[in-house]
Write a protein that binds this DNA or RNA. Structure first.
Lengths: 235, 235
DNA sequence: CGTGTGATTGACGCCTGTCAACGTCTGTGG
DNA sequence: CCACAGACGTTGACAGGCGTCAATCACACG
């Protein structure tokens, strides 16, 4: 699983990917580089399981990972996606709890494992880093609260439109306005919190209405305004 | 609004209510006592509004406060309840954002306003406190993620049963097994994320099934097992 | 006693989940 | 190179959970 062809250096990676670590001192970078371990994972591989005790957190260098919880009947609920520069698993480390989510690779990924001790010593010794990490947790908390409200009050149709816009904002479009993240219909359903069939029907409605175009998993965003409106995303 | 009859001392309050501040040094307590301001609020009063910039956070000494977001058509979504010992508004202070929720008094409340500077200086100077605060944010984040999954996957019936159990766990029962928190039907609906009428119908179903008993806003929990089962709360 | 807020009940219908069948594509093994 | 299995996508039928609207009741308060 290790990949020795390309071991990213934290200094450059944190700058390129604008990660939390970008303000560390050279000494701290050295420490981090020394203690981290790099891995390569292909789509479908699991990084950690809900309910397991994890011994460190992970910093994504390349690729996309989905973070999800398993609900009734094993149905996944996708909580968020992690992309280069993001740190995952820090929640369980800081609060010293078992992992409350699982994480699985969506797009082939290079990531670095950071042992719990290393992360915690950074938190304790570097107030700025500690503050940044706290901000991150607070930001995620704010987003989670917003999503609770959405999912509790909006229809599936509204949520799907909203998710499409969010995906566009987070992962961007290619030159043909196609979403730069490729998800199965089931994964889309597991973000929105609905059945796969509902996603399929609504997507083809959106297509009929000229809001998007579909070609397999490629979703072309044609009318951002329209989707934003359907998603009730003003205010 | 100020109440000079009873100004709680942080030392004793934090111990009694088991708050985050319980591990401060005497010097820090002095600082906190000096800079805080105490207020008394009656049911229905608003502490802060979503979208406003708040200049500090609040520590609850007595009473109950609901934290909620306003969604479509002004419908409330209750995110959590704060009770004595809890700190609210810290998220906006730490991440330096506008308040992403509003908070309103459910039961007459005494609380202390802690200026942003005071809180932040504690965070920067006391790694233990900082760590505790981070744990708190992480804990709330874990709970929010769990609730996203619930609300996306469970039926209204299941969620209502679950909420009743949660309310029992958080606020306890009196000698007659009646919930120690008094909420309107609408507030219950705004936790569960449903219509008031649905809550009413389901509550009376639960009553018919002998799971609870109703007397106005008093909800008597008669069958914890049964509710837990309906709420799918094992695993 | 009028007014307002909250609680309750009934009618109605649509959104959405479930089930089932079938089509499509990809990779694998014979 | 073909057959097959398995994963994924699509479509239709159907029912029921739950939201919405409206009317009425209960109760507190000025």
């Amino acid at each position: 699983m290790k990949n020795f062809q390309h071991i990213p250096q934290c200094e450059t990676c944190s700058l390129e990917n604008n990660s939390l670590f970008r303000h560390l001192s050279q000494e701290e970078f050295d420490h981090l580089n020394y203690h981290k371990t790099c891995y390569f994972h292909k789509r479908g591989e699991i990084i950690y399981h809900e309910g397991s005790r994890i011994s460190g957190s992970y910093c994504i260098n390349r690729g996309i990972i989905k973070i999800y919880k398993t609900g009734i009947d094993g149905k996944e609920q996708i909580i968020l996606f992690a992309k280069p520069g993001d740190i995952i698993g820090y929640r369980s480390i800081l609060s010293n709890e078992l992992a409350c989510t699982s994480s699985k690779v969506i797009e082939d990924t290079t990531l670095c494992f950071i042992p719990a001790d290393t992360l915690i010593s950074l938190v304790k010794s570097n107030p700025n880093f500690s503050m940044e990490l706290m901000k991150l947790a607070c930001k995620e908390l704010g987003e989670a609260n917003a999503y609770i409200t959405d999912i509790a009050q909006k229809t599936v149709r509204e949520r799907l439109a909203e998710i499409l816009i969010h995906l566009k904002d987070n992962f961007g479009l290619d030159q043909d306005n196609v979403l730069q993240i490729s998800l199965t219909r089931e994964e889309l359903a597991n973000i929105v919190g609905t059945a796969t069939e509902s996603v399929i029907r609504l997507l083809s409605e959106f297509k009929t209405d000229g809001l998007i175009d579909l070609n397999g998993r490629k979703i072309k965003i044609q009318d951002v305004q329209g989707l934003t409106k359907i998603g009730n995303m003003f205010r």
